[in-house]
Simulated assay, not measured.
Amino acid sequence: MRAKKSSDLISPTGLIKLMTHALMGAALGLVFGLALILSNPAVANLLSHGGTQAVVVFALTLVTTFAIGATLTGAVFILVENKQS
Rank of each mutant, 00 (worst) to 15 (best):
P12H: 05
P12T: 08
T13R: 10
G14T: 03
G14I: 02
L15H: 08
I16Q: 06
I16A: 09
I16C: 05
K17F: 00
M19H: 13
M19G: 15
T20V: 14
H21S: 09
A22Q: 00
L23Y: 00
L23E: 10
M24P: 02
G25M: 02
G25N: 01
A26Q: 07
A27W: 02
G29F: 01
L30E: 12
L30T: 10
L30M: 14
V31P: 08
V31K: 13
V31N: 14
V31G: 14
F32M: 13
L34T: 14
L34D: 08
L34Y: 09
A35Q: 10
L36H: 12
I37A: 14
I37C: 14
L38H: 04
L38D: 04
L38F: 11
L38A: 11
S39Y: 03
S39L: 06
S39M: 06
N40F: 09
P41V: 04
P41H: 03
P41G: 07
A42S: 06
V43F: 07
V43S: 04
A44H: 01
N45P: 00
L46M: 12
L47N: 04
L47G: 05
G51E: 09
T52H: 08
T52C: 05
Q53M: 14
Q53V: 14
V56D: 04
V56I: 12
V56P: 04
A59E: 11
L60H: 06
L60T: 09
T61S: 15
T61L: 15
L62N: 15
L62F: 14
L62E: 12
V63S: 13
V63M: 15
T65E: 15
T65Q: 14
A67D: 03
A67L: 07
I68W: 02
G69H: 02
A70D: 06
T71M: 00
L72H: 00
T73P: 01
T73V: 04
A75M: 13
A75E: 04
V76C: 06
F77I: 10
F77W: 03
I78E: 01
L79V: 02
L79C: 00
E81T: 05
N82W: 04
K83Y: 03
